[in-house]
Design a protein around this nucleic acid. Structure first.
Lengths: 201, 201, 201, 201
DNA sequence: AATGAATGAGCATTCATTCAT
DNA sequence: CATGAATGAATGCTCATTCAT
């Protein structure tokens, strides 16, 4: 990797980071290229040196965000052994990720919208569903471990993973709407407890 | 209510229904007023006789959809007594609603996006969060009933409702991305079972 | 043809006429859509009600011009019998057409450029070459008549037509550059005389 | 002239030659500076070391082409004595020049367009009309010689030159549109014969 | 009331030109 | 000298909205 290449890559990332900020504040649609350029501190034309179109810039930014979350997740879960700890950490980490950076959660609606398959045009982000499935399979492995260790009931691990992921997504959407209660700690505990013990008396 | 007034209201609804179809297919942003007009079989100008702007037409359509879901939910749950039956019916009904009509689920991303509070502009749909909260409180009441009847553990009913709603939303989002497994019946059973019994061995 | 249709067609022509004026003054490339709109006394968007793109507006205008010349030519030559008269009238009419309307001749370069076949993109005006060939064949018929009547030497009528047309075009290009002598009458006479008698002593 | 200076001049010409190639393929307007730079094998900035603007590069290239044609013409006609031979050679040489180099003829439309006087902006190539006039006068001298030697009728030599030049230009334009018949030899013969003997029986 | 032709504000994108290296 | 990354002025085109009929 020549120093040039690093610079180019770094600048690309800087632009995507600026874009994500503005996307979060205004939504991808309402965001104009000039807004991103100004936020990134570059000229409008410069954006097109790094991305062929607004669409690609959106897709790139979103994928970068996914990669960052993935990386953090791997790093966080790597040292853990107990499946229960892993799941707890998974939920915690996801929440932290989307809340720590101002408004990052507000990207989520655009993010999902970008993955919707439409009849006459490919989805904005091609493999968002594959990424999602990978995540689910990763969780499923953890759940399988738990089942093997007799920590969990013998559940359908894939569907259980799907449901857990759904719950996390759903809660993030509530946060997006401003509905999350201030004590996230307690919410987390309740999710864990509900997920583990159910609601039945 | 004069017959004229009824006609007006009916036509308004017809337009909103046409709009929802197109929104589902293309997303609200990509949908042009002319698309809606054509689908509704009216002229472009006519839309503006019934809605002052595209924004209001979007908001109106979404609220109509919410009202329809509400009405169906009330009708479906009204005869039920057992809190468990009510919750099961709630989940079932929500899924049916979003799946029975071709692609209705694809409106969801736009729907949530419409409710995001933005710094410099009010959310497209003003009270989406209140509606959401009402729904949650409704569910909370059901859960409270269950707790009272000792069917459920003594949980924080509001948070539990929030979590259940989140799970349902999340699963619908997965469906939106085309990830739902074909056997919704089984998914439903798993959700219910997980929600009731948790995962713990 | 309903009155609406007439209006639509008429307005389309009005726009093309305005466009031709501006094209002549500035060249097609330097002409902005807003220039044409202003000249036509309509809004910018209106142009797009009648033409899907600038390219199509250019092509349409040029074709209209060709049609006008064709129509005039037919009308002018129709009453004539003597091939020599026809050829003289053909040359006269072409010159008048391009000179009578201020600067119409200045469209010619763009006009021909529009017909150039390019490797990776179809020519702007698809059948300009066919139109040109038709014109040549038309002239060839006249020349054949002249040969038959023994007014002309037995020449290759197609090539002779090609050459005559070339001469006319070439003179128009000179006019375009501002090189035409003021006494067009005399030029015409010289062309006719040269074409008929050659230069040889 | 220092060796450096020669290099500079040589490089300038190399750039102009590259430019002409691209102009022929795409037209001057569609040609981007980067296209020329790549074809010339230099950086985009380098072009501006040799030409202050795209406009000047176009003008320079066109003038270079004219100079090349002039030089060839002088060399070709210099040994000839008979005015008829000169004229034949003139026509032949012009045709060869524009056909031998792939697509050179396709520059012609842009070339003429560049010479059109526009109301609010000087023509791209300032003296193209003067060059054209010089060429005509040169031809006129040849014709005068022919008249003097009684080879030609006593014609208006300037107008005759204009007409001959027009014919050549017009035929080149036909070639530009792809209309030239494959047997250029025969076309040439016909032009000569028509020009000399006319068409009259 | 219903319509759709007309409109122009607004935006993504292009590309000639500059200038730091 | 040579370069190409950076720039922003310039423009084709879209589409929500208006309003005369």
């Amino acid at each position: 990797m020549s120093p040039k290449a690093v610079d180019k890559k770094t600048k690309r990332q800087m632009i995507m980071r600026a874009a994500l900020e503005v996307f979060a504040e205004q939504g991808t649609e309402a965001t104009k290229m000039i807004d991103i350029a100004r936020r990134a501190g570059v000229g409008k034309g410069t954006l097109y040196e790094y991305f062929p179109s607004k669409e690609e810039l959106i897709a790139g930014s979103m994928l970068m965000m996914m990669d960052e979350l993935d990386a953090r997740m791997v790093e966080r879960l790597y040292p853990l052994v107990d499946p229960l700890d892993k799941i707890r950490a998974f939920i915690e980490e996801t929440f932290s990720f989307f809340v720590e950076k101002e408004d990052r959660v507000k990207i989520l609606a655009d993010f999902y919208a970008a993955g919707i398959p439409r009849p006459d045009s490919k989805p904005l982000i091609a493999d968002i569903d594959k990424r999602y499935v990978e995540l689910m399979e990763w969780l499923a492995v953890i759940i399988d471990e738990g089942v093997e260790r007799k920590s969990f009931r013998p559940v359908d691990s894939k569907q259980t993973a799907s449901i857990l992921l759904a719950t996390i997504d759903g809660l993030l959407f509530q946060a997006m709407l401003g509905l999350m209660p201030p004590d996230r700690e307690k919410v987390l505990e309740n999710v864990i407890s509900l997920f583990l013990d159910g609601i039945k008396a």
